[in-house]
């Protein structure tokens, strides 16, 4: 089924090459029929779509969803691009009806299906987003010279695309984010469920909520996490460890203003152990009645504390090379 439609389309496309570009109305019909409002460009049909003269604006995204490229920006960008296209279509289901204004059509091209097309534009990286103005040039491949490239920036892609399109097409754009009803329903369901459960088991819930141990644990856990630079990892999106192409793995990086995800875990673990040992000294060791056992316990805890602290100092010394203090030198 899929194959047949495709072949029919391609035959049609081949047929049409001779005649020239689509008219505005033909494209509008295509968009109306299509399930997504973004038309697909492939090696077979791009000439038909792009060769002039054109009576409409063309916006095209050249990208790939293929996993072999490992392109996070591609995956990030495409939905936002489609959102802009759909919003445009929602506002103008029958095209713009002004006299001097031209329609805009959105295209998407997947690299796996359109290698020649990408070659024609001499692309060596993706994603790329181009704009083609209405044109009277009817020469073959005349459109190549008319491309206006979109600059990728950090930020909300959809609004950035709209800003760009507004400047090149001088059309007004609105963004219609479709309301995700299932998500609202699921959220409402979960909230309701939780409330009902809380009401039914209110005694148990209150017990948990008023449990001192729980709150103590949570507070100390949070403190250990934050003081070991957890927020740094979150904000800078640091990798857990750093892998080199030759297979070596770095678990830490030098420098006081840098760290990897693993470091946070290690350091909060060390802090936790050290705190625990001090607590043992304060709370548990004095309770031991037998004097010899008490001495052994105190010695054990003190020595572990000493070793733990030296480990921390060694690690800190690795991070900041100028630091002169160590108790025991584990590493140079």
């Amino acid at each position: 089924m899929k194959f047949s439609i495709f072949s029919v389309l391609s035959i049609l496309a081949l047929f049409n090459v001779v005649i020239g570009a689509y008219t505005n109305q033909e494209l509008l019909d295509q968009v109306k029929k299509a399930s997504t409002k973004v038309l697909t460009l492939t090696d077979k049909n791009y000439e038909k779509y792009l060769n002039g003269p054109r009576d409409y604006h063309v916006v095209m995204l050249l990208s790939s969803q293929s996993p072999q490229f490992k392109c996070p920006l591609c995956n990030e960008f495409k939905p936002e691009y489609e959102l802009v296209a759909n919003s445009w279509n929602q506002d103008h289901p029958n095209g713009v009806n002004g006299d001097n204004e031209k329609d805009i059509f959105f295209f998407y091209s997947e690299f796996m299906n359109s290698k020649d097309f990408f070659q024609k534009l001499k692309l060596n990286n993706i994603p790329k987003c181009f704009y083609l103005p209405p044109s009277t040039i009817s020469a073959k491949d005349g459109w190549v010279t008319e491309t206006d490239e979109y600059q990728f920036f950090q930020g909300q892609h959809a609004t950035l695309i709209i800003d760009w399109l507004r400047s090149v097409t001088e059309h007004k754009f609105n963004l219609h984010v479709p309301i995700n009803y299932t998500r609202i329903a699921v959220n409402a369901g979960i909230t309701f469920g939780v409330l009902v459960l809380a009401f039914i088991f209110n005694k148990q819930v209150m017990k948990v909520l008023t449990s001192k141990t729980l709150w103590t644990g949570a507070a100390i856990f949070l403190i250990l996490l934050f003081n070991a630079g957890y927020m740094f990892n979150q904000i800078r999106q640091m990798p857990y460890v750093r892998e080199h192409p030759d297979g070596r793995v770095d678990y830490w990086v030098q420098g006081q203003q840098a760290q990897l995800g693993f470091e946070t875990q290690l350091v909060s673990f060390i802090y936790g152990i050290l705190s625990l040992l001090v607590l043992l000294l304060i709370k548990q060791v004095p309770k031991i009645q037998h004097p010899q056992v008490k001495l052994i316990a105190a010695t054990l805890v003190s020595v572990s504390l000493f070793l733990g602290y030296s480990l921390l100092l060694n690690f800190f010394g690795l991070k900041s090379p100028g630091y002169p203090f160590r108790f025991v030198k584990f590493v140079k």
Binding site: G229, Q256, A258, V267
Partner: peptide, 10 residues
């Protein structure tokens, strides 16, 4: 800027 762990210890 956010704080890396060495800054806390430092």
């Amino acid at each position: 800027q956010p704080t890396a762990w060495p800054a806390f210890f430092f």
